[in-house]
Design a protein around this nucleic acid. Structure first.
Lengths: 220, 220
DNA sequence: GCCATCTCGTATAGGGCGATACAGCCCGGA
DNA sequence: TCCGGGCTGTATCGCCCTATACGAGATGGC
C-alpha cells in the first residue's frame, strides 16, 4: 500500500475557487524541498496560497523543541496571520516537498478590497476556519490525557484523509508512533500503549499497517 | 487593593478606533449578567464588539466539562469566527457581568466592505491577532507539564494587565487557583503547588494577594 | 458579633506517564 | 543471503499529578 504524505488541512471547494479567482493579485513562486516560505521572528506582509506540494508549519520553543502545528497541502492558505497583524511571525513554514504557491502581499490589500470586497470576505472565511480548527485543538490539548490528545489528532486526520471501509474509516496517511508523539506532546511509548488501549476498547483497529477508526456505536 | 476582574485580552488602541468608527453598521445591545451572547452549536452571522462588562468564552466537551478559552473585556471582538465561516458556533459566550456590546451581522458585510475596505482590513487584523494568541497557547499546551501551562497563562495575563513594580510586573487581575486550574487543564491542588514551586525558583512572588512576575535574570 | 462560604495550604493514597532499555519485525541494500 | 536501521511492542522504575479530604484564614451577609 502506498505511503502517501498528506496535509492536515483542507478548505472547501467553493472557497478555493473564490481565492483562485483573485490569484492575479499575487505572484506565483516555487520553493524547493526544504526551502523556507517564512521563518519565525521575521516581519512580513506576505502570505501564501499553496498550489502544489506540502508545507510544514511549526513553532520552535525557547528550548529549541519543535511543535508541528499543521501540514498544509494544496489549496490551503498559510502565513496570513502575521501578514495582516504586522507582528513578527509566530511560526515557521518549510516546504517538505517541492512546492508551488501564490504569494500575496497585504500592503496594498485595502485598495484591492475596495474593488473586490468579496475577496475580503473570502479571506475572513479562511481566517475564521483556521480559528475554528485551532480552537478545537485547544479544547483537546487542554486535557492532559494522552488518549484525548491522540484521538483528537486521529479525528482531524480522518476528516481530511480517510476513505470508507466496511468497518469505519481508514486513514490513508501513514504516520509513525514517533510522529504522533511529537504532534500530541507525549512520548512514543505512550502512543504505542494508548493505541493498544484504543484497540482493546474497540475504537480503532490496525489494517495493513494503517489505522482504522471504527464506527462508533452511537452512529450506527 | 481592588480585586478588579479583567479580561485575558486586549487589542491596540488604533485598531479599537478603526472598529469603533464603523459602529454605525451594527446595533448596540445590552446583556444582563449570566445572559448568553451566543451558544455553542447554533448557526449565526452575528459577532460582537464589547464596550463594557466581561464575557466568558468557553467550549463544552462531550462529557460536559468546560474549557474556558478567554475572558473578553471592553474593546474586544468575539464571535466573529463562526459568524464568517457560516458553521455552527464552536464556543459559547456568557456575560459574567452586565455587558454592553455592538452587534454586527456578516450577512451584508461584503457590500459594506466595498465602501469601507479599511473595515475589512481591521477585521482581518483582529482575526489574525486571535490566531496568534491561540497558536502561542497551543505551543505551551502541547507540553504536558503543568508549570509550562501555568506560566503561559501568567505571561499572557502579564501582557494584558500588569503594571510596573520595582521587582518586576504586578498582575492587577485577581485570579483564583481554581480559575487557573480550569484555564490550564490541571487541578486546583497542582496550581497551588506549582505557584509554590515558582516562588521557590524565584520566578514569581505574591504581593498583597496579587501575583508578581519577577524580572528574569536574563532581562536585567 | 456570628455563621456560611470561598479560598488557600497541606496530607495521603493510587495510578499513569516519562525515561530507559531491549527484543522482534519488516524492509532495503550490499 | 546476510546485515543494519527504523518501527513497534514490552518491561521496569521513579516521579509527579489527580482525587479526596481537612483545617485555617479571609470575606460577606444578617
Amino acid at each position: 500500500m502506498t505511503k502517501k504524505k498528506l496535509g492536515t488541512w483542507r478548505i472547501d471547494r467553493q472557497l478555493v475557487e473564490q481565492i483562485s479567482r483573485h490569484a492575479a493579485f499575487g505572484r506565483r513562486r516555487k520553493f524547493k524541498k526544504n526551502a523556507m516560505l517564512y521563518e519565525q521572528g521575521e516581519v512580513s506582509t506576505r502570505f501564501y496560497f499553496v498550489l502544489k506540494g506540502l508545507v510544514q508549519i511549526s513553532i520552535f520553543r525557547a528550548d529549541g523543541s519543535e511543535v508541528v502545528l499543521e501540514l498544509m497541502g494544496p489549496e490551503t492558505v498559510c502565513g496570513e496571520g502575521s501578514a495582516f497583524d504586522g507582528l513578527p511571525r509566530f511560526s515557521s513554514a518549510a516546504a517538505i516537498e517541492d512546492t508551488e504557491a501564490i504569494e500575496f502581499d497585504t500592503s496594498k490589500m485595502t485598495e484591492i478590497f475596495r474593488a473586490h470586497p468579496e475577496f475580503a470576505t473570502s479571506l475572513l472565511r479562511v481566517t475564521s476556519l483556521k480559528q475554528r480548527v485551532v480552537a478545537i485543538r485547544l479544547k483537546h490539548l487542554a486535557s492532559r490525557e494522552p488518549q484525548d490528545r491522540i484521538m483528537e489528532l486521529l479525528t482531524r486526520l480522518e476528516e481530511m484523509f480517510a476513505i470508507d471501509h466496511p468497518k469505519g474509516r481508514l486513514l490513508v496517511t501513514h504516520v509513525t508512533h514517533e510522529q504522533i508523539a511529537t504532534m500530541t506532546g507525549t512520548s512514543r511509548v505512550t502512543v504505542t500503549r494508548t493505541l493498544q488501549r484504543l484497540r482493546e476498547q474497540n475504537r480503532i483497529d490496525i489494517v495493513d499497517g494503517h489505522i482504522l477508526l471504527k464506527r462508533r456505536p452511537c452512529a450506527g
